[in-house]
Design a binder for these strands. Sequence first.
DNA 1: ACCTGAACACCGTTCAAGT
DNA 2: ACCTGAACACCGTTCAAGT
Lengths: 213, 213
Amino acid sequence: MSIRVARKRSDAYQHGDLRRALVQAGLKLLSEHGVAGLSLRAAAELAGVSHAAPYRHFRDKNALVAAIAEEGFKLLTRAMRTEVEACSSGDVLLRLRAVAHGYVSFALAHPAYFRTIFAERVWLDKNDPMKDSLVAASRESLGVLRGLIDEGIRNGHLRAGDPDQISLAAWSLVHGLSLLIIDGQLGGLCDTPAAIRSVTDSVGRLLQRGIAR
Amino acid sequence: MSIRVARKRSDAYQHGDLRRALVQAGLKLLSEHGVAGLSLRAAAELAGVSHAAPYRHFRDKNALVAAIAEEGFKLLTRAMRTEVEACSSGDVLLRLRAVAHGYVSFALAHPAYFRTIFAERVWLDKNDPMKDSLVAASRESLGVLRGLIDEGIRNGHLRAGDPDQISLAAWSLVHGLSLLIIDGQLGGLCDTPAAIRSVTDSVGRLLQRGIAR
DNA sequence: ACCTGAACACCGTTCAAGT
DNA sequence: ACCTGAACACCGTTCAAGT
């Protein structure tokens, strides 16, 4: 996907929607140059604006990263929902596997983006006024998984248990697997989409055997 | 733990063991100022040496990070071994839980360090001549987990299965859980050692139910 | 062989000044 | 209200020069 960044016309006094343009620029930088390539100055330049201009819209770099992360969670949520709907099965276990696949696939397709979403500094900055909406976006992402687990427990396809614990286990599993792959720990094990599905499924099945009735 | 960095005496021509001093300085910077606080220039200053001196020992910052990561894997390995030995049970499942606890505890005790160990750039740089020993250190870490799983399959405490798959699932689970906690995703759920053990155990049990005989 | 100091191209952040 | 340009304190990296 090619990301468009609205540039300020050089004869204009104002940009119009600089905030949005900076977020788009950040996404472009992340996807083209990785985490290290994301800088306020580079984003400002892509938006056709001076390097100090972003400070009218974000109080620091971390605030821009938080805005990008929020956008990222929405994309992650959509990626998981799309997989679940494509599955179109009544079987909760199959749909859980689809969510897992959506999660891992998103991470592999947008590694720098995925890492940025979970970058600690975004989460540990208590004063960020944007934090509420970021947390909301994150909860919605996790909600896709959580909803299926609740449903499985309710209709008896999953063994009775604490849904918080089960969600956390499932989330940890797909999160860890995603990071091990994109950090290169598995030595290029997952190059093809088929290989991704195979690894995700086989790892997921082991947990499923533990939580299924 | 307070980390000592050997400084060059200002009247001396050479440092003596600058390479080692820079790695120690890196560890100190990581533990005191986080990932963002780790810079070649700051490490050089801690070692009492000019900012260009490190380039006689590391071809770039990434090479220093790789050396730090190698040291980190050794500490991680020791942390897991210590937990397993303290467990002193013949039960593979109990010892697996001890390994899991060692892994997660290490991550929570040294978050910046843990993140650095797995930083993608360290792994994706194919040309780094140090990569072989880094990979060896990483394999030894994973070997602690892997050894227990092999043993469990051999003596029948674990269900028969592909040990690669089972190891990957277990590793993904503890890795994901560690990162979700240190990245603040769980909202300060794990503040006390008891809470860490409780979460690790409950999540681990779900996977164990899937892989135990 | 090992280290220094100056230099270059980047950062994030602040602030007075412009429109 | 929004943006610019200069400034400051940091980076990583290179390179001629010193011991």
